[in-house]
Write a protein that binds this DNA or RNA. Structure first.
Lengths: 203, 203
DNA sequence: TTGTTTTACTAAACAGTGTTCAGCAAATTT
DNA sequence: AAATTTGCTGAACACTGTTTAGTAAAACAA
């Protein structure tokens, strides 16, 4: 009997349909507007149905944020193809990170700012997708350290510092904390800051 | 007739009562739990009364976040008394900023992460309290640049970079994005990162 | 002191949120 | 054909922020 297989397929299909709809709505209209009812409306099911496929809203948006990490990780990997110099790798990944944030601000917000996805994790389990992304950064930094091309020797301190710097830039921008810099364009200033940071890092 | 003066006083007193209660609840129980009804309950007035003193919840929490800035700015000013070396000033203010965030996480969240306070500002007006805090950072950085004790010459790029770095550290921690660093204590790693950044900056 | 106006406040409602659960119709199994 | 399981939903619950009509008390005017 292929019935149970078909049912399994149907179930996964429905899960995906909810997931993609949730993603779509919140990319278009933001996290606030992506209510269970709005999602249910668009897929033409009742709100209660969503709870047959996801424990709660946090779990649903945890899954959405995983989709975001698939994209970001993909772009972080792609960013360094053909690059051999470790510092150039770091620059490429830095700008790829920033580009992702600029082009997918709502998704970035969900992945790195919102509480929702983190609240769906039990305290024991790890933030696998986030950790995977972090390891890509570590990888590049390790090459920089090994080749003695940056002025930091401790991997974790370097990784934490660089990630924090990039996240700070991007999240202050997303959450509207950058305002007047007396006529200087904020986006240009941000790129200049990244460039400056690389100069500081380089040996 | 001192009646209008007394009424004015009463009005300000009531505003302050609402403000302090809002602050208290959200410091104790977080932004989510600080609902208009919860605030109204605690001051023993109806929820509608709050709307006679504040346009909406965003405006109320804009005022709360201003209280936060008063404290932070005070501590940023205090942090450098008796210090003459510009880089030591920078270190002191960096750690003061971090300490404020650790000791007042909900308030920091409201000031630099939440959308609410920013949404209450009309697009024309500036984020005065945030800007004032930013100027304190600029002040110290300017002294560093003038004395040629850091490796950055552009004030705005330096200020944006340093603020972003500090905010990144603190906000990733507050929003629970720092997890496993293979046994290394996160708080220690954060302090190490600040120290490392100062080393990179120093000429 | 009386009558009138202004002020300060609130009950109740509106429109929205996440979430749960009893019940129903259709699919599946016996 | 009967019994069971599955997939789904209407309606409710307990919350949000916010608005408005109405009321009692305070202030003012005669």
């Amino acid at each position: 009997m292929g019935i149970i297989q078909r049912k399994e397929r149907d179930r996964l299909e429905m899960r995906l349909k909810i997931l993609e709809t949730a993603k779509q709505i919140f990319i278009e209209e933001g996290f606030e507007k992506a209510s269970i009812r709005a999602i249910a409306d668009r897929i033409e099911y009742s709100p209660a149905t969503i709870y047959l496929y996801f424990k709660d809203k946090n779990e649903l948006f945890f899954s959405v944020h995983e989709i975001g990490f698939e994209k970001l990780n993909f772009e972080m990997i792609n960013a360094i193809v053909g690059i051999t110099d470790p510092v150039e790798e770091l620059r490429a990944r830095g700008f790829a990170y920033m580009k992702f944030a600029f082009q997918n601000p709502e998704m970035y917000d969900l992945m790195f700012i919102q509480n929702a996805p983190m609240e769906s994790m039990k305290n024991s389990e790890t933030w696998a997708c986030g950790h995977r992304c972090f390891l890509l950064l570590c990888e590049t930094i390790e090459r920089c350290i090994e080749s003695k091309s940056i002025r930091i020797s401790n991997l974790y301190i370097a990784a934490m510092s660089i990630w924090s710097f990039m996240h700070g830039l991007v999240s202050l921008k997303i959450r509207n904390r950058f305002q007047k810099f007396e006529g200087v364009d904020v986006d240009e200033l941000m790129k200049g800051s990244v460039e400056q940071m690389i100069q500081l890092l380089k040996v």
